[in-house]
Nucleic acid binder design. Structure first.
Lengths: 204, 204
DNA sequence: TAGAATAGAGAACCAGTAGAGAACAAATCA
DNA sequence: TGATTTGTTCTCTACTGGTTCTCTATTCTA
């Protein structure tokens, strides 16, 4: 995700002044600080930063603009941790987080193959017991057997977690939610990025 | 859980003055200190802090506003991991396995409190996304808040995993399966053994 | 040089936040 | 026991702050 000049400028300002705010700044406060007259203009830039995973999304709430936590590299990571890459929401690209975090995942889930962890957003697999906010452990693979749950890249742009069925003619992706229908794609529109190996959920 | 401005302001005040109170402050005292005229308004903020796990819930008691003691940063204590104790099946005692195995559970799930892992047998919590064969991470505790999912020992003999509701008269255990009914017990028949903190599932 | 990408102004919308105050019930105190 | 605190719940009001528009200006690029 490439930022424009103004976007990086604004992000810089946020980072530089992060410790300087006693509370998360509102759009109006930022507008004044940045010499903007219109919240609407600022909003577009902030949205770009949210999309780039640099600013926390605030779904309608009024709590000011916050940077996404840039946790310093966890040193335990070398110790057989599994990288946490971001959020997977049906219908959108993976929202990568800037610096990979590492999770201590039991070897029983990962096996010996390379894996990564994604956070699930949405309810499309709810009937398989995969809920909004769960973390899935994905084994890096570019092929899958029928019936496996896969991370699939569709048309090179959006990514989704679904149960896969491959026929000679097409690839069918089955959600596990009565409200959603299976969708069929031509083979060349679906690129498998990994296979579901494990699941983590926090009730904290 | 993201706090609003006023909520963080009030939380700050509580933290800053924690050592300053000789006993927990009342709502009225706090209202005055914070320049509020209405207890009702303050109550909403405090509830938000309780919900965020920053303030201890005070079920009815007076003079009850206390901060949740902040666990010090997790010390990578999980050298050995979390003990795997056996299988929990609704209606039977925990089937302990002879030699405790240890699982490498991410610190995000355990927090700093002592935990153990059980394997779930049965479908009684299927609508909460807890499936037969899943592993649950349980924090060792002998009390729980309403709405939490607990490991409960019933009549000193059988153990079960259910959502708990404690009323003055009785304890109600709610399964999450349309085919099963909630069951009410007298308080002395239910002994809480732990609270659900996390969940692991293997698709191997 | 036309069209796209970037940047901004400003208006309008409305959900979230904040607070007041009344009424109630449980806990505590006299 | 009765009176008083104290926490809880409710309704009502106000306004702030994030979002969405449309419209315009400027810069970049094919």
């Amino acid at each position: 995700m490439n930022l424009t000049r103004r976007q990086t400028e604004i992000y810089r300002y946020l980072v530089d002044n992060a410790g300087h705010f006693d509370r998360p700044p509102t759009y109006d406060e930022l507008c004044e600080a940045l010499g903007l007259a219109s919240r609407g203009s600022l909003h577009k830039h902030i949205q770009a930063l949210v999309h780039a995973g640099l600013v926390e999304p605030m779904d309608g709430s009024h709590r000011g603009i916050r940077l996404v936590e840039q946790e310093e590299p966890v040193q335990e990571s070398a110790e057989a941790g599994v990288p946490y890459l971001g959020t997977i929401a049906a219908g959108r690209p993976i929202e990568a987080i800037p610096q990979a975090d590492y999770l201590q995942v039991p070897a029983e889930l990962t096996g010996s193959k390379p894996c990564y962890v994604l956070k699930v957003s949405g309810d499309s697999m709810i009937e398989e017991g995969i809920l909004d906010g769960d973390y899935v452990v994905i084994e890096q693979r570019d092929s899958a057997r029928n019936g496996e749950i896969v991370v699939a890249l569709l048309n090179g742009e959006e990514v989704t977690l679904k149960r896969i069925e491959q026929t000679p003619a097409e690839v069918i992706l089955h959600p596990a939610n009565i409200a959603m229908m299976p969708v069929a794609y031509p083979h060349d529109a679906v690129q498998i990025q990994g296979v579901l190996r494990g699941l983590l959920r926090s009730y904290r």
